[in-house]
């Protein structure tokens, strides 16, 4: 983790892209800031040079709108939503692979962040944590003996054929993961 945090200019562009990439619920539920924060977490895990390219690309995307005729000399983050969606589309089906890859990357980061929001998962009925707890408990109830037997087998001596247990072999006792 790099401790990365968005610069204000980066955050402004990402804020403006959330309504373009995400379903309307992102704005309706007031999730824009949370989604952009989540994008920051993901960007923090990316390799430095990749993250640097992305930041530079976002800046270029923002300023590129100045010379996009329908934008009327406004940067991307100041375009009205419908116009912002059209501008994003010009990158998504862009003139060069670089335009396209950048737009794809941005779309992926924002879509990931949107569907990682707990409130969105709850609305979808996607509750994996509940399921995990339920089956974890059932497993322990039904199969405790087998689980214990295998755990014991993991620390029982079982030398390879023809290899005598070595006198230097030491053993430890504390815990497994």
């Amino acid at each position: 983790m790099s401790g990365y945090q968005h610069a204000p200019a980066t955050r402004r562009v990402l804020d403006s892209l959330v309504p373009v990439v995400c379903p309307p619920e992102a704005v309706e539920l007031g999730l824009v800031a949370d989604i952009v924060d989540h994008v920051g977490l993901t960007m923090g895990a990316l390799p430095g040079r990749f993250r640097g390219g992305l930041i530079m690309g976002l800046r270029t995307y923002d300023l590129g709108a100045l010379i996009w005729p329908p934008g009327r000399l406004r940067p991307a983050h100041r375009l009205a939503p419908a116009l912002a969606a059209r501008y994003f589309d010009t990158w998504l089906h862009g003139p060069t692979p670089i335009h396209k890859q950048l737009a794809l990357g941005i779309r992926q980061l924002i879509a990931l962040a949107h569907y990682e929001q707990p409130v969105i998962q709850e609305r979808m009925g996607y509750r994996p944590a509940q399921w995990i707890e339920q089956v974890k408990r059932r497993r322990l109830e039904l199969y405790a003996d087998d689980i214990e037997r295998h755990a014991r087998s993991l620390i029982e001596p079982d030398p390879l054929p023809g290899i005598a247990p070595h006198p230097r072999a030491r053993t430890r006792t504390k815990g497994v993961a």
């Binding site: 969606a85 994003f88 569907y115």
Partner: peptide, 25 residues
Amino acid sequence: IPPSIIAMTTSHTGRELGELMADYD
């Protein structure tokens, strides 16, 4: 695959993305 990863890999955006993901289950 979790919904967030599916959403990442589709070509949909905006309202269309929401409509597709409504069928996640």
